[in-house]
Each structure stands twice: as C-alpha cells, then as structure tokens.
Design a protein around this nucleic acid. Structure first.
Ligand code: MN
Ligand code: MN
Ligand code: ZN
Ligand code: ZN
Lengths: 138, 138
DNA sequence: ATGATTTTGCAACAAAGTTGCATTCCCTGT
DNA sequence: ACAGGGAATGCAACTTTGTTGCAAAATCAT
C-alpha cells in the first residue's frame, strides 16, 4: 500500500482517485497551497467543487492544516503527524510568507512561543505568521 | 476639528463624508470589523466599491491594520498610533478570535514574543492570532 | 458480484472582489 | 465667496470565489 493510500486509510477515508491526486500535489510541493493552486494543477481532471470538498475533508481529518494570512487567501499544508485532538488542530510551528516570491512555508523547526493571555481568555489554537523575505529570495 | 477629521488630515487624506462615516464605525466598535460588517452598517449610504476603496486607503495610510484569520475573512481594526514605517505596519500585539461569539479583538496589552527565524530569513511583519473563548463568553 | 453508502460532476446560485468611466465632491488659490 | 483642477464616489459590468441540491458514478463491505 502506498504512502498516499495509507494516509487516507488511517483517516478512515475511502480511497478515490481525486483524493489521491490532491494528496500527491501536496506531497510534491514544498510550500503551502491555496485552493487556486490546486485547481490550476488538476482542473481538467477534477471539478472545482470536488476540490473544495476534498480540502474540507482533509482539514477535518487532520491531514492538512490551514494557514492564516492577511491577503484573504487561506493556504493549506500537510500536517506532520496526526494533529487533531478533540476537534481542533494543535500545530505549533511558525509560518512564513515571503513578500518577494509569495510562497508560504511551514517552519517546522520554529516553535510558537508561549504567550500569556489576559484573565478570562481561554486558548484553543494559536497561529503565528511572519512576513518578510525568504532565504531563496534574499 | 473633530478627532475623526484630524485622523484623516494627519494622513493627508481629504475629508469626505464616506471616510468619516467608516472611521466612526470603527471608533464605535470594540472589535475588529470585516468588510461585510461595515457594509451592513452603511450600505444604504455608501456603495460597496467605496467601502472597498476606503479600507484599502486606510490600510495604506496606517489608519487601520488587518488581522489574519483561518476563515478567509480579513478583519480590520484601528491602529493605535501611526504605525506605518517604510511601507509596512509594525503592530506588535496579539489578536484573539472567540470561537463562541466570533468576535476578534486586539489584545493591545499582550505583546508578540520574539521568535528566532532560521538563517537566511528576514522578518518584516509578525502576526499572532489566538483562537479560544473570550472573557465574556466563558 | 451485489447492494448500501459515499463521492463526484454538473448546474444553478450567491457572495466577494475588481475595473472603467462619468459624475460629484473636496480643496486650493484667487 | 467662487472657480477650476484633482480626487473620490457611484454605477454598471464583470470576474473570481464559494455553496447547495441532486443525479450519476465510484467505492467498499458483505
Ligand atoms: Mn504549517
Ligand atoms: Mn490589532
Ligand atoms: Zn521568497
Ligand atoms: Zn466571545
């Protein structure tokens, strides 16, 4: 059984060609992908709606996580391990978006530092996104 | 001269009723606002396109900053001081989005902690967004 | 292999964002 | 106070993005 198939099986998802293709696109990319990025790679093979639904499914199953940004475009990246605990992701790495090449990457080795919230606030998820210039663009 | 007018004047913007109205909406709100939030408060007075253009102008002038989120909705909040330096904002406070009431707020008193990027990466802006339950919803 | 269940494609729709252009408004100088 | 030039606005048309219902197709357990 291939890596791709076991990812799907482990998440109790049926193995369909569409899901395998989208997973393959993620695995062969070294940066985060927006819906549009995926669509432009397989719009001839799969319907737009299928891509939306597949991304949604992957999110819920903890196969991918989404990365916030100020440009109104949510990007997605593979989760390293099973990272769904009681309904929400617990990724704890920093994300970086390059102002020059536009690419967004997971900085898996950079952990989000702790932060003290004011009294009364409960923390479920935390996201940190850094903008700047990446190492290939400088 | 009113507070609202001086904000516009200080940013070398002409004082129009639309800009004053949108500023007023921000000033009277205690949470961050999405385009849609503003539109629903003044759609009868001003065109959708004007709101888009006004938010864009305010952003560029450093009157408001935008807050990233994973739900594909950018929200905006007033900047505390002039926070535009060489073309980019330098807000350094944490943002909080409540999963219960959906409101996003600036935690002005919580400073984003420093983080060490890998070699070769240059930091321009940094954003931190925490999800959870706010003090009024718990 | 068969049938129940899930996934997909299609169509239709709704919402969000963009652009060009004519009109209106604001500001400056007189 | 007024006129003229430049900036902002409204409107229309359009593109892009996201959603929903339903019938056809694919997947999976038996
Ligand atoms: Mn990541
Ligand atoms: Mn803020
Ligand atoms: Zn780059
Ligand atoms: Zn709340």
């Amino acid at each position: 059984m291939s890596q791709i198939e076991s990812i799907l099986k482990n998440s109790t998802l049926s193995v369909t060609t569409g899901r395998k293709r989208i997973l393959e696109i993620f695995l062969s990319s070294n940066n985060a992908l927006a819906h549009q990025d995926i669509e432009s790679q397989c719009a001839d093979e799969y319907d737009r709606v299928t891509i939306y639904r597949t991304l949604q499914t992957f999110l819920e199953k903890g196969i991918i996580h989404n990365i916030p940004s100020t440009d109104n475009i949510t990007r997605y990246a593979l989760c390293n391990e099973a990272c769904i605990v009681s309904g929400h992701h617990h990724d704890n790495h920093v994300h970086f978006k390059c102002d020059s090449c536009g690419k967004t990457v997971c900085l898996d080795e950079v952990t989000i530092p702790k932060v003290q919230l004011p009294k009364g606030y409960t923390m479920k998820e935390i996201n940190m996104v850094v903008n700047g210039v990446c190492k290939t663009c400088r």
